[in-house]
């Protein structure tokens, strides 16, 4: 068996330090929608990007339920996530984190969006992409000075998510060793 495909390899070399750096990238991304940050430290099975794998190791543990979309739900990734995080793999309606490609993650309606009393009880999507979409939308709102251009896989669907605010889904987009985010608080308009 090659080292790359082993479920036991590819974790953080220095867990506390690597996770601290990775979290800083994830926090900066969530605080500044649309901006791209570098995130690295983990080497997951090749079905997901190093950025997505690093984010999973940073945020997931036995307390978080993870849904794997059909395009990434392989025995090797299941084994890798189970060994490194202990997170239970569940169905979409129970998930705290959902991981996969955009098309495989749909429909968005199957995830938890929180309740009026507890809007935080909602799912976070980790949308893993071969490369980021070219900018097709303009964002404004918290974390954004004036406006920022962002590439989104489906503007209309994500606009429907933001009108749910303060309920709704928060999304991380990962590609290679880069990360950006779209929280539910961003206002999205189609770029002319």
């Amino acid at each position: 068996m090659q080292a790359e495909t082993s479920q036991f390899s590819g974790g953080f070399a220095a867990p506390a330090i690597d996770a601290a750096h990775a979290f800083r990238a994830a926090m900066n991304a969530m605080a500044r929608p649309g901006k791209v940050f570098d995130i690295h430290g983990a080497t997951p099975p090749s079905v997901i990007s190093p950025a997505a794998g690093t984010l999973v190791l940073t945020l997931c543990d036995p307390e978080t339920k993870v849904f794997l979309a059909s395009d990434v739900d392989t025995p090797s990734l299941r084994a890798w996530i189970t060994f490194h995080t202990g997170a239970p793999i569940v169905s979409p309606d129970e998930a705290d984190f959902a991981l996969g490609g955009w098309q495989a993650l749909l429909p968005l309606e199957q995830y938890r969006i929180g309740t009026p009393e507890y809007p935080d009880r909602s799912a976070t999507l980790i949308v893993d992409q071969p490369e980021f979409d070219t900018p097709n939308a303009s964002l404004s709102g918290p974390g954004i000075k004036d406006h920022i251009a962002m590439g989104l896989p489906d503007v209309a669907q994500l606009q429907r998510n933001t009108v749910l605010f303060p309920l709704g889904l928060d999304l991380f987009f990962t590609a290679g060793s880069q990360i950006k985010a779209l929280p539910r608080s961003s206002h999205i308009s189609e770029k002319a």
């Binding site: 867990p15 506390a16 996770a19 601290a20 979290f23 994830a26 926090m27 969530m30 605080a31 940073t58 945020l59 997931c60 543990d61 307390e63 978080t64 809007p119 935080d120 909602s122 976070t124 918290p142 974390g143 605010f165 303060p166 928060d170 929280p183 539910r184 608080s185």
Partner: peptide, 19 residues
């Protein structure tokens, strides 16, 4: 410990998403 930090980090991300 790391598990506590992950729990706090998840709360911070939710807080940033719902200002």
């Amino acid at each position: 410990d790391e598990q506590t930090k992950r729990m706090i980090r998840r709360a911070i991300l939710k807080g940033l998403a719902i200002p």
